[in-house]
Deep mutational scan, measured.
Amino acid sequence: PKDEAKKKVKEAIKRGDEETAKRIAKKYNLDWDDAKREADEER
């Protein structure tokens, strides 16, 4: 599900692992900028 994928993307971003985050986002066709902004807001 997309929500689960987005959570994984945000967790990867918070760990500083943007490569993984981008790969997950691409795989699930998520909006990378959107997920990154959300992760930054939660930090």
Rank of each mutant, 00 (worst) to 15 (best):
G16H: 04
K22Y: 02
E19G: 05
K27F: 11
V9N: 00
E19V: 09
E38W: 07
A25C: 14
N29Q: 09
I13L: 13
L30V: 15
K26G: 05
E19N: 06
R43N: 12
K22A: 05
R15K: 09
W32Y: 15
T20H: 08
K14V: 08
K22E: 04
E41H: 09
I24K: 00
D17L: 05
E41K: 11
R15E: 06
T20M: 12
W32C: 06
R23D: 10
N29E: 12
D34I: 10
K22Q: 07
P1M: 14
K27E: 15
A39K: 03
D17S: 02
K10A: 09
D34A: 13
P1F: 12
A21E: 00
N29T: 03
E42S: 07
N29M: 06
D3F: 12
R43F: 14
R15G: 05
N29R: 03
W32G: 01
R23M: 09
E19I: 10
A35E: 09
E11M: 05
A35H: 03
A39D: 06
Y28L: 06
R15A: 13
K26E: 15
E42N: 07
G16Y: 03
T20Y: 11
D40E: 13
K7V: 10
R23F: 03
Y28W: 04
A12C: 12
E19P: 04
R43A: 14
K36S: 06
R43H: 11
K7L: 11
K7I: 12
R37P: 04
L30S: 02
E19T: 09
E42G: 06
K26L: 10
A21I: 00
A21G: 04
A12E: 03
K7G: 05
E19F: 05
K8P: 01
E38V: 06
K27C: 15
A39W: 09
A5K: 03
E11Y: 00
K27W: 07
D31V: 03
D31N: 10
V9D: 00
D3V: 11
D17N: 04
K8A: 13
E38S: 07
W32I: 08
R23S: 10
D31P: 04
I13S: 01
D40M: 12
K27R: 11
L30F: 05
E11H: 04
I24H: 01
T20R: 06
A39I: 10
E42M: 07
D40V: 08
R15N: 12
V9I: 14
Y28E: 15
E11A: 10
A35F: 13
D33T: 08
A21Y: 00
K7E: 11
L30P: 04
E41A: 13
A25V: 03
E4S: 09
T20I: 08
W32A: 01
I24N: 01
K22W: 02
K6N: 04
D3Y: 12
V9Y: 05
R43M: 15
A5G: 09
G16N: 04
E38F: 06
K8N: 06
R15I: 08
L30R: 00
I24Y: 00
E4K: 08
E18L: 15
E4Y: 11
K14P: 01
A25R: 00
G16W: 02
K26F: 04
R23Q: 12
R15Y: 06
D3K: 09
A12W: 04
E42C: 12
K27T: 07
D33Q: 09
D33P: 04
E38L: 08
D17P: 00
K26N: 08
A12H: 06
D17E: 06
E38K: 04
K22C: 13
K26S: 08
K26R: 10
I13Y: 06
Y28M: 05
K36V: 13
